[in-house]
Amino acid sequence: MANPPPPQPFGKPSLPAGKPGGPTGKSSATSPPSSPAARRGFMVETSAVVIGGIVGLVPALSGLAVFLDPLRRKSSAEKLLRVTTLDALPDDGIPRQFAVIAEHVDAWNRSLEPVGAVYLRRNKGEATPQCLTATCPHAGCFVNYDAPTNSFKCPCHNSTFTVDGQIIEPSPSPRAMDTMECEVKDQEILVKFQNYYTGKTEKVVKE
């Protein structure tokens, strides 16, 4: 194709310009809408694309709206929850595991359910306990308290933590165990239970 023929501005030359109807409309896809036939062809194509697009988009968009709905849902676990009584936690510095019972909303269901677990620990004479979540900040496994070494151990990827929840290196976990707000009211221990993103250096609350 050393010498390409000059571009033909108005459709195929074999068809007389201005002849209405017929297959002319289709062939003028790339031509500017300067002749009536080409203009008509352009209108037909545009309409076909627009109408075709609309009939496809409406179901797709309605589906997308529902599909994205979870993004605006918040975790049901974020209020102050009663975990146990102060009597149940001696001030001996040993962490004890407690289940956190919360109102649990799962789509259309609402129930009171254990939503997770925390380790509470009270040093001698301390009024307010320290509260650590039992979920490993590395990948979300359940951390165990190991009494002989007085430390926390994660059974999944070997993360270990001191009794305060600090990292013992080397550890796959990017951060220390997550502490949670904890208060004592009328001899009851209340915890602001939250879930956090795992695998991040900073503790970020899952909303």
Binding site: F67, L68, P70, L71, R73, S75, D106, A107, N195, E207
Partner: peptide
């Protein structure tokens, strides 16, 4: 959150 269908694991 999109994959899990919300902030918690469940029906969705």
């Amino acid at each position: 959150q999109l994959v899990v269908g919300g902030a918690d694991y469940g029906h969705l």
